[in-house]
Structures are given as structure tokens and as C-alpha cells.
Amino acid sequence: MSSMLALQDAATPFVSLDPNGPVDIIGAWLMCFLTLSVFSFLYKDNPFYKVAEHVFVGVGTAYFALQYYKEGILEPVRDHMYDIAEVMGEPGASFSLGGYDADPTIAFILRAVAAIFGLMLLTRLFSPNSWAPRWPLAVMVGVYSALKLTGETQSKLVLQTKGLMKPLVPENVGEVGWFPDGVALESTPLFLTIANAIVVIGVICALSHFLFTWKRGRTLGAVSRVGIIVLMITFGSMFGFTVLGRIALLIERVNELFDLSEPDYAFGTPFLSPPVILTVLIAGTLTLFALQRKEGTDS
């Protein structure tokens, strides 16, 4: 009874449909249940994890389908064509198409062709070997390749090469010296010179590891070996950052569980906090299952 009264008096609502509002009580219990259910997989695959997995897939599919329907069909086809149709009859009217003014009729036809291409892609659903999806696919591959090729060549080759042409001795070293006071170690000219030299030597050595047309003699072999070390350091750094990211995610979930153990979500008493109750419930059920299975195996 006292719990019910506490529930009525609580500042946190039991159910709230405001997406920008604070977490409601039902939401808090659900969040705890799903988080702990996913963590239970660390013990082993179990029904709690399966429930969380299925809920995630279901909710994710619904949300993504709606978003893509709205942004991929409703807006670019229905709304866009409606906008064009509105100005189509007006004398001297033009419609902005990719930043250029175009005749509304041409703009309408182009968008209609794109929509027809979209429908042609769908024919694969009932006729896998049909010619129809190949046309839009060819356009997509062509456009995507051109976009990737131009953008990536500029950013990953031209500008990276330009970025590699670093001065070994910083220009301001004459004024401030190699190791000026009050400057962070990583910003001192000495540090930058060493760092730049390592980058240039590292790139040359790593690239030399992929020279397969020449016989790997003493010099090339030695340079290539340094290249391998550079690559291993890179992979190590990637692994380190991955660990950093994964632990950060774990800490965030634990933080969330701590936040949801506030009395607001626990009917006014610390003993009924969602993480505590649900941990006991899930761990208890899994232990019970494990004991039953053990008994069954023993007998």
C-alpha cells in the first residue's frame, strides 16, 4: 500500500510519452531489464538474451523502415514531385535541380525516371534473373564509383601526399627555440621534428613492404622489416583504441544502471531499485536452470 502511495506521489511519471522528457518508471525498468539481459550473454546464451535480441531487432527494423520510407520515398518522390507540379504550368517558371535552374517539366521527368528506376530494382523480388534491375544497378555503381573515386583520390592520395611534405625543422624554431617554456611537450619544435621524421620514415618503410616486383635483398629486406614494425604498432594502436571504446561503452551502461537505481524508480525504497531486483531475478533464474540441467545430467 505504501509503495502504491509512493508511486502516486512520485515526481517521475509511471508512463510518459514525451520523447524529450525524463525517463519514466516503466522505461527505467525496461532499460535495466534489457541491459542486464544482454550482459547475461557473457555467462552464456540464454532466454533473457534471446528476448533482448529479438526486441532490439524488431524495434530497430520498424524504426529504420519508417525512417527510410519517409526520407527515401515520401520526401524525394511524393513531396518533391508535388512541389514541381505546383509550378509546372506557370509561364517562365524554373525549378532548382541539383543547384541548377531547370524547366519544371524536365525536372518532373527526371524525378519520374529515378522513381521508375527504383521500381525496376524491386522486380528482383519476384524475378531474380530479370534484366530490369540491372539498369538502375548500373547507374548506381557508375555514380557511386565516380563519387568515391574523385573524392577519395583527392582526400586520401593528393592531400595525404601533400600533408606528408613536412618541414623537418619548424619555421619558428629560430624565434622560440627547440624547447620553449610553457608549451606542452607535444607542441614543442623538438617533439614535432622527431614526430615528422618518424611519420616520413614510417610511410617509406611501410610502403616498401609492399614492393613485390623486386627481389628482397639486404637493404630492401631491412627497410621492409622496419615497415612491418610500423604496421604492427599501427594495429596495436587500433586495438588499444578499440579497448578504450568498448570499456567506455561498459562504463556508460553501468552509469545508466546507477542512475536508474534512484529512489524515484524504486517506489521510494532503495531495496526495490530496478537494477538490484532484476539482477537478482535474472541471475537467480539462470542459476536455477543451471542446477536443474546439472541434476538432469547427473541422473
Binding site: 583527392q154 593528393v158 595525404q160 599501427t234 594502436s237 587500433m238 583504441f241 578499440t242 571504446g245 567506455a248
Partner: peptide, 30 residues
């Protein structure tokens, strides 16, 4: 690739730790 290189935009990023090692090569030129 699509904005920095093409339109010479000044860019800033916040990334996940997993993606961070890729960014050092772009700093400070791009």
C-alpha cells in the same frame, strides 16, 4: 572526401575511439 576535398571546407570531428586512429593521418591538413 565529399566536402573537405571538393569544397575546401574547414572540418572538425568527434569520433568513437575505434575510428580515432584513422584520423591522425588527416590532422592538421584536412
Amino acid at each position: 572526401a565529399q566536402a573537405g576535398g571538393r569544397y575546401d571546407m574547414t572540418m572538425l570531428a568527434a569520433t568513437t575511439a575505434v575510428q580515432t586512429p584513422d584520423l591522425f593521418a588527416y590532422y592538421p591538413t584536412q
